[in-house]
Simulated scan of single mutants.
Amino acid sequence: MNAPILSVKGLKTHFRLSAGLLKKSAKVVHAVDGVSFDLMRGETLSIVGESGCGKSTVGRSILRLVQPTEGEVILDGRRVDNLSQAAFRPLRKQLQVVFQDPFSSLNPRMKVRDIIAEPIRNFGILASEREIAARTRELLAKVGLPSDAGDRFPHQFSGGQRQRIGIARALAAEPEIIICDEAVSALDVSVKAQIVNLLVDLQSELGLALLFISHDLAIVEHMTHRVAVMYLGSIVETATRRQLFATPKHPYTQALLSAVPVPNPDEKRERTILKGEVPSPISPPSGCRFHTRCPLAFDRCSVERPQLSDVGEGQMVACHLYIDTKVSATAGAVA
């Protein structure tokens, strides 16, 4: 089998809050708390979950925009989480990002041609200005923008056009991986579909690996190969697209899918309504992080944290319900 282009092992990213005058110690936000996954070449892996579950922090930790607390990030066979910023800088060429807000992520003082040309100059991909200008026009055409768009500033474009500029800037570095951090969540529905189709076409043409961070399961179902579901800083289920949308295993995944709007008004769907609030990442609950809201929780869930276990055909679930079932089935076979 081919080796993964990106491998994340036991990633933890904690943020220490400053202690007040009367507090003995500072509190810690467990934003990401033990995340592991592999991303294969040419694959789209989607990380989904509620707002605040830590999925964007995973992407930022991989990019070293925030420094991971523990764990390993291995890029194309080389560990990069423990490198200095100077040593990591040349490797950023392989790993680019498209941010959620296309306006705030583009320099308003720079023309579009300079925004796209900046990575080409920074990484020394092309030497002459003539070659850089030609490459900039080529990238604009690749993302569906006219060549004269390079003479304008970001504020002169719509939201969807600005996101195309952000994608062109990411492509300028000739990366192997692009992290899309809620890249379509700020766009209108019709524009959102155009950008998703553009990413799919670019992946097919260039062989890119995409780490697609989103809370929109309808978009995820359209473009992904595999899905990782996060809850309160940890992954609770990983599966292929077909497995996840046809046979979700974890109670949290089932609740998420039940909330996806159905385009047919005559079709009825049974909703799973989760009770209570999402616990604070400052003091996450013991045992399974989801047990305080899970309708199927039992005693073991509150004291023992379940590990991701294979429940068949590579579908991984962190839930005591399936661990118990697996143990019982094994014991029956031995008897």
Rank of each mutant, 00 (worst) to 15 (best):
M1P: 04
V8E: 15
G10R: 03
H14L: 02
F15P: 10
S18E: 15
L22F: 13
H30T: 15
V32G: 12
F37I: 07
G42W: 13
S46Q: 00
G49R: 07
G52Y: 00
C53F: 01
G54Q: 02
G59R: 11
I62H: 09
L65F: 15
E70V: 01
E70W: 00
V73H: 05
V73R: 06
I74T: 15
G77E: 14
L83F: 11
S84M: 01
Q85G: 08
A86G: 00
A87S: 06
R89I: 04
P90N: 10
Q96A: 00
V97P: 03
P102R: 14
F103N: 01
F103K: 00
N107H: 06
K111M: 04
R113M: 12
A117C: 01
E118N: 09
P119R: 11
G124L: 11
G124N: 08
S128D: 13
I132F: 13
I132A: 00
I132H: 13
A133M: 03
R135A: 11
T136S: 04
T136Q: 03
R137E: 15
K142W: 01
K142H: 04
D148Q: 10
D148F: 08
A149Q: 04
P154Q: 07
P154H: 00
G159M: 04
Q163H: 08
R164T: 15
I167Y: 06
A170I: 07
A172Q: 02
E182N: 07
A193R: 05
Q194M: 05
L198V: 09
V200Q: 02
D201I: 11
D201K: 14
Q203V: 04
L206F: 01
F212P: 03
S214Y: 05
D216G: 14
I219A: 14
V220T: 09
R226I: 05
G233K: 12
A246G: 02
T247V: 07
T247P: 04
P248Y: 08
P248V: 14
Q254D: 04
A255F: 05
L257C: 07
S258V: 07
V262M: 07
P263C: 06
T272L: 10
T272W: 11
I273G: 03
I273R: 01
P279D: 07
S280P: 04
S280H: 05
S280R: 13
I282V: 11
S286W: 11
P295F: 10
A297D: 05
F298S: 15
D299N: 14
R300T: 06
L308E: 10
D310S: 09
V311E: 02
E313A: 12
A318W: 01
C319A: 09
L321M: 00
D324P: 02
T325S: 15
S328V: 09
V334K: 09
V334N: 06
